[in-house]
């Protein structure tokens, strides 16, 4: 009961803050909660909005697939081969620190305008955390488990399915949760600069044409979707870690 009350208090706090900002800054900067919800509901019923949403989702799907598969594969390789892992880890951590937005002109020159630039943007944002989490998960498998596998004469396949997978899965799920959010962020940024379609384009277009109502509504939809997906992954994450 108190938990429900606390959650409601948080939501109320956010709405209050939103209203306060709206009262202070006026409708040239942001629209109020009620108006935004109404406009967002209206947007959700329109076909052209869904075309943009679909463009974002398909680019996001490709980018996430690449981030996840390549990220986990690289993480496993670097984690199993200790020396490569030790060499690569600080380099990857540094890459993570770079503001990747600044690479966008390079991305445009290499990939051109369109879906591939968006996907590339999503991948450079999302893949590194997946690699880092997988790497540390594999590196931190207790040696005792591996020795047990050897003692029991497990085949490499059996070791992988019965021992490695369960041991590293929780960490990989955590990495995927962060990779998921960052890939989405990357795709949105890619759309803001390198595209004429998608939700990121709707946002930047709204900003440039001072269409505050639409921008705020699209941002609300994007944030809601992102937080909801994160919540679902977080629940999965908790269950995997128990």
């Amino acid at each position: 009961m108190t938990r429900l009350f606390d959650s409601l208090a948080i939501v109320a706090g956010i709405l209050l803050l939103w209203t306060g900002v709206f009262e202070y800054a006026g409708d040239s900067a942001i629209t109020g909660p009620l108006q935004t919800f109404r406009f967002a509901a209206n947007l959700l019923g329109r076909a052209d909005f869904w075309q943009h949403a679909q463009a974002t989702l398909s680019a996001f799907g490709y980018a996430l697939a690449i981030s996840a598969v390549a990220g986990i594969a690289l993480g496993l390789i670097l984690g199993l081969h200790r020396f490569s892992g030790d060499v690569a880890e600080p380099m990857l951590a540094s890459l993570y620190t770079i503001p990747k937005v600044t690479l966008y002109p390079l991305m445009l020159l290499v990939f051109g305008l369109g879906v591939s630039a968006k996907v590339a943007f999503g991948v450079i944002h999302g893949m590194i955390p997946v690699i880092l989490f997988t790497l540390s998960a594999v590196k931190n498998i207790p040696q005792v488990l591996l020795r047990t596998a050897k003692a029991l004469h497990l085949t490499p396949m059996q070791t992988a399915t019965h021992l490695l997978a369960p041991a590293v899965l929780p960490e990989i799920i955590s990495g995927l949760r962060i990779g998921f959010a960052l890939t989405f962020l990357g795709v949105l940024i890619g759309e803001m600069f390198a595209s004429q379609r998608g939700l990121g384009f709707l946002i930047i277009n709204g900003i440039n044409s001072h269409d505050v109502k639409r921008t705020t509504a699209v941002i609300l939809i994007v944030i809601t979707a992102s937080v909801a997906a994160n919540g679902a992954l977080l629940a999965l994450d908790r269950r995997a870690h128990h």
């Binding site: 959010a181 944030i223 937080v227």
Partner: peptide
Amino acid sequence: APVLASWYAVPSFVFYPLLVAL
């Protein structure tokens, strides 16, 4: 806890125009 856990799921740069207005 949920706010902190989902903070980085929100692309914070979308707030930038709002901050400029503020």
